[in-house]
Computed example of a mutant assay.
Amino acid sequence: MIASPAPRAAAAPRAPHRPGPPPQDPPAPYHPDHTGPSGRVSRLRIGWHAVPRTGLRRLTVWPATGAGLLLGRNQQQVPVPLRLFDPDPVRVALVGGVWAAQLLIFRAFAIGARAMVVTTEQRAWSGFGERATGQYQRLTVLGGEPDALPPGTAQTPSLIVYDLGVTGPATAPPLGPWTSALTVLRQLDRPGVAALQEADLTLMQRLGGDESTLAAATLRLSQQNGQLLQFMTDDMVALVGEGPDRFVSLNQTGIEQQYLGPPRR
């Protein structure tokens, strides 16, 4: 005879659910590799992060170099900044053509600069400032050297460009803070040597044989670097000054190519 199952006990009624306070985060554990002054790490907050000391050792801090612009990338694809503006005046010599000069000015416009161009070939500069910025007051083109330069500030640095062929200006007004001078040498010959000697930074597009010999002697380049000046591609410049000599790819953007055309000297 099979015994019938015993009747189940009635389930006790459930208490209604009442929401309680939200759970509190447990205190942050002590960790010897990333502690604050109290020896503990506080809870994560928006905008604040705890970094292990081992991670801090891998951080790189770039030195402050005034208002710089990105010149391009070196052969290791590392960005190369150009210290074009600074509280102290900066003098730059460019052995190359109008295209390279206008590329530098185009990038200087992006950091708020105003430019003044003194040139014997005003047609090459006609309308450039208006096309590049949509404004008329950002670039002034002159046929003769000015008596004074517009003052520069950290927010609106000033750039004076001398495009006089194969030499720099005979006389030039003194440069003030946040004011830089760019001397463009269409060809490098004896009259332009002084501009290279006075420059804090020198940029060079691809040079011919006589030009590279003169540049190497003036700037005291190594024999290898002097020879490489003749073999750069159209979109490269050599940068001499502020550390080791570098060969830089300019990495022209689509907008720059639209306004300036392809690289050339």
Score class of each variant (00 low, 15 high):
A3M: 09
S4N: 06
P5A: 00
P7C: 01
R8T: 06
A11C: 07
A15V: 09
P21E: 12
P21Y: 05
P22H: 10
Q24F: 05
Q24V: 15
P27M: 01
P29E: 01
Y30T: 05
H31F: 01
P32M: 03
P37M: 12
G39W: 05
R43Y: 01
R43V: 04
R45C: 09
G47H: 03
W48S: 08
P52D: 13
T54E: 14
G55L: 14
G55E: 15
G55V: 12
G55R: 10
R58T: 15
L59V: 15
L59Y: 08
T60R: 15
A64M: 08
A64W: 15
T65I: 11
T65P: 02
G72L: 07
Q75V: 14
P81S: 11
L82N: 10
R83I: 06
L84E: 01
D88H: 11
V92R: 02
L94V: 09
W99N: 02
A101D: 08
A101Y: 00
F106P: 00
F106Q: 01
R107P: 07
A108C: 11
G112F: 02
M116G: 08
V117M: 09
V117L: 08
T119M: 07
T120K: 12
R123L: 09
A132T: 00
Q135M: 03
Q135W: 05
Q135G: 00
Q135Y: 06
L139R: 00
T140H: 07
G143Q: 09
E145M: 13
P150T: 07
P150Y: 01
T153D: 03
Q155I: 04
V161W: 10
A170L: 15
A172N: 14
G176L: 06
G176S: 07
S180R: 02
L182M: 10
T183S: 15
V184Q: 14
V184P: 13
V184M: 13
Q187W: 14
Q187P: 06
L188P: 15
R190K: 12
R190N: 09
P191K: 12
A195S: 15
Q197Y: 09
D200Q: 13
L201P: 11
L201K: 11
L201E: 08
L201R: 15
L203F: 04
M204T: 13
M204S: 14
S212T: 09
S212R: 09
A216H: 04
A217P: 01
A217D: 12
T218M: 11
T218R: 08
L219K: 05
L221F: 04
S222C: 03
Q223K: 08
Q224R: 11
N225G: 01
Q227I: 03
L228M: 11
L228D: 08
Q230N: 10
F231W: 10
M232N: 02
M232C: 05
M232E: 02
D234I: 01
D234H: 10
D235Q: 05
V237T: 10
L239E: 06
V240W: 04
P244I: 08
D245W: 04
R246C: 11
F247G: 07
F247M: 08
S249K: 07
L250E: 03
L250I: 07
L250A: 03
Q252D: 00
Q252C: 06
G254C: 00
E256N: 02
Q257R: 13
L260K: 00
L260S: 04
G261F: 03
R265D: 11
R265C: 13
